[in-house]
Computed example of a mutant assay.
Amino acid sequence: MTLNPAVDLATSVEHVIAGPKLYCRPPSIDPGGGGVNVARAICKLGGRAKALVAVGGASGDRLLQLLAAETVPAHTVPVSGETRESFAVTDEGTGEQYRFSLPGQTLTAQDGDRLIAEIASAVSQDGYVVLSGGVAPGLGDAFPERILAAMSPRTDRLIVDTSKAALARLIAQPSVPVYILRQDQREAELSAGHALKTVADSIAFAETLIDRGVARIIVSGRDSEGSILVTKDARYICRTPHMAVVSKIGAGDAFVGALTLSLSRGATLDVALQWGVAAASATMGTEGTGLCDRPVVEALLAHCHVEQV
């Protein structure tokens, strides 16, 4: 599910400097937004996924055309306003990437009700449901809770990777635990209210979230160190293989996609974590808004070492 999708553009210039007009290279253009990228990653890895997207206007039509070009099935939910764009510019001299995300337009209460109805109808029995990306303005910070309630007659496997106020509410006021909550290092530290300097710090914070009923499984990135996965009874860390980083766009989404696909195929949690890290690493080796390729992910698996902590 992508509540605030985007058409993603990525380009580069010789140097990013203030003042003069900067002449960019021809851009790569891809469908974007958290859930969209999760679905794209699953399909690229040989799985089956449907991208439920809230789209509007000419930009929304373009996003759907881009999804169709990648043969990613879409469940379209028309909403008011225009689908947003985001863009990234790489400085060719330094290799640094500058990422710009435009705000989505405010959705109405009717848009929210329509989304909930479509989500309830689209969920499969005992299926895996992913909410990835930000909650569109106007839907309210409690919208993930509405999703959880709407899908509960058919499944309780909601995987959440969101941010800002919606994430803060989910952590501060848990109602029913989500199946998996994923955070990156920065999000986890903001949620904790202090730095998480060590793996042990991240695990301890994850344990508090589980004890408070936020989620049954917590997955948290630790940048170049890898990612941890914590349940009530198990703690794992998967180390990130050493490789050159070309672009970080979509890496977290590829992680969630590969993790979810692996779980849906019956993998154990440690193996699913390994697939997630491999997919994220493969994505960071691609340019712009490109995502992981299956042969690269499979080759990286052997270099993604999982340890029980």
Rank of each mutant, 00 (worst) to 15 (best):
R239C: 12
G127F: 04
L300E: 05
Q308A: 14
V178S: 05
A200M: 14
L229K: 02
A192W: 00
A117T: 13
V53I: 07
S80E: 15
R216W: 05
E14W: 08
S247T: 12
V256E: 00
P144K: 05
V72S: 08
S132N: 14
R212T: 13
A279F: 15
H15F: 05
Q173M: 10
E298N: 11
V309Y: 14
C304Y: 04
S28G: 15
S124T: 13
A49C: 07
L3T: 10
S202N: 10
I17M: 08
E82F: 06
G46Q: 05
S28H: 06
A258K: 07
S12L: 04
V245H: 06
G213K: 03
R157I: 02
H305P: 09
D211H: 11
V230A: 09
P295E: 13
Y23Q: 07
D253V: 10
V38H: 01
H194R: 15
K50Y: 02
Q308K: 14
A150Y: 11
E298G: 08
A6G: 07
E92D: 15
A279M: 14
Y128K: 09
P103Y: 12
P78Y: 01
L63Q: 03
I228F: 03
N4G: 05
G266S: 12
A69M: 09
D111Q: 06
A172I: 03
G134T: 08
S227I: 15
R239V: 13
S202I: 01
S281H: 14
F100K: 07
I159Y: 01
L259F: 15
G221T: 11
L139E: 01
Q274H: 10
T83F: 07
T231L: 11
I228S: 06
T162G: 06
C43P: 00
P295A: 12
I42P: 00
A251N: 08
